[in-house]
Computed example of a mutant assay.
Amino acid sequence: MATEHKISATGREAAGKGASRRLRRAASIPAIVYGGSAAPQSVQLDHEKTWLASQNEWFYSSILDMELDGKVQKVLLRDIQRHPYKQIIMHLDFQRVDENQALRAKVPLHFLNQDKSPAGKTADIVVTHELNEVEVSCLPKDLPEFIEIDLADLAIGAIVHLSDLKLPKGVELPELKLGKEHDVAVVIAKHGRVETEEAAAPEAAEVPAAKVSKKEEK
């Protein structure tokens, strides 16, 4: 069972760009809550509290208990708009969650014990994380805050695919249902020296060509 995370919001009637600007000047964030059997509702959140919450990974991948005008409803963050260069959240979109209906959400990956693995201990081996998050499908109660990948046994030259992930009970990867070609690499352990040699090869090939051109000029 995932940890419960609470946020607070209040309803708002005024809409439009002007109303949103006024909210931001008052240190609030305009937002909308939609989905389920209820109509979309415009709301506002305190910017400072929400900004602090947004620094946590769970804010983006967990079911949130939103206290809205005295009532609590479960929501999932679906979109966040930020200011181009200021530390300001401009707008938020939340989707209501039906506890009896499966949902799709992106969940971060946590990589464990990479330094202890055979690949991680080898100097000329580069371990790359091809994905940092995956999309899962599950009931809201089964939604994990993250998925752990234990790399303690990662061998030199090994590749960890989506199908190798150990998923919590009730959680699926929709991507795997689309065919074998969608079973993409998540982690790759490869020789870093190979890339260096390949990158240097074209430059080495240019030297003889330059010498030939000089001989022709004579």
Rank of each mutant, 00 (worst) to 15 (best):
G170E: 09
E197P: 01
H5D: 01
A185D: 09
E172P: 00
A27V: 09
V136Y: 10
R22N: 09
A15E: 14
T50G: 07
V97W: 00
N100M: 14
R24Y: 13
I125V: 15
R12L: 06
G35M: 10
A2S: 14
R104P: 01
P202K: 13
H91N: 12
H129P: 03
Q114T: 03
G120Y: 06
H91K: 10
A102F: 05
E133V: 00
L52I: 05
F94W: 10
G120C: 04
H47P: 09
H191L: 13
S42F: 08
V72F: 04
H191S: 15
D150L: 01
E197H: 09
M1C: 08
P108Y: 05
D150F: 05
G36E: 05
Y34K: 03
D150Q: 09
G170D: 12
A105G: 01
I63V: 15
K169W: 01
V127D: 09
V184T: 10
E203R: 15
K6S: 10
N113S: 02
R25C: 00
I29Q: 07
A105I: 13
V72K: 14
I63Q: 06
E198R: 15
P140R: 07
I156Q: 15
A31Y: 06
R25S: 11
D142W: 09
G16V: 06
R193Y: 06
R82I: 00
L103E: 07
V97F: 06
D164T: 06
K190L: 09
L112T: 02
L52N: 11
Q55L: 12
L173F: 07
K215T: 02
E145Y: 03
S61G: 02
S163R: 08
D79F: 01
E13P: 00
I159F: 12
D98S: 15
A201S: 12
L109Q: 05
D69P: 10
L176Y: 15
I29E: 12
V194G: 02
D46Q: 14
G157D: 04
H110N: 10
I125W: 12
K218S: 03
A27P: 04
K215Y: 09
I7D: 04
S54Y: 08
R21G: 00
G36T: 05
P84I: 00
R12E: 08
R78H: 13
A105E: 03
T10G: 05
K211F: 11
E148Q: 14
K214Q: 11
K211C: 02
S28A: 15
F59V: 01
L109R: 05
D93S: 12
G36N: 07
I7F: 11
I7L: 15
S28R: 15
K71M: 13
V187G: 11
R25G: 01
K71E: 15
Y34C: 06
L112Q: 09
S61T: 10
V43Q: 06
S20M: 13
K141C: 00
H91A: 05
A204L: 15
G170T: 13
L165W: 08
I149P: 06
K141I: 13
V72H: 03
A38L: 12
I188W: 01
F146M: 06
V33Q: 08
R25D: 11
P174Y: 14
D69T: 08
V134A: 07
E148T: 11
K116C: 01
L139E: 03
A15R: 14
H182V: 00
I63C: 11
K141A: 14
F146S: 11
H129F: 14
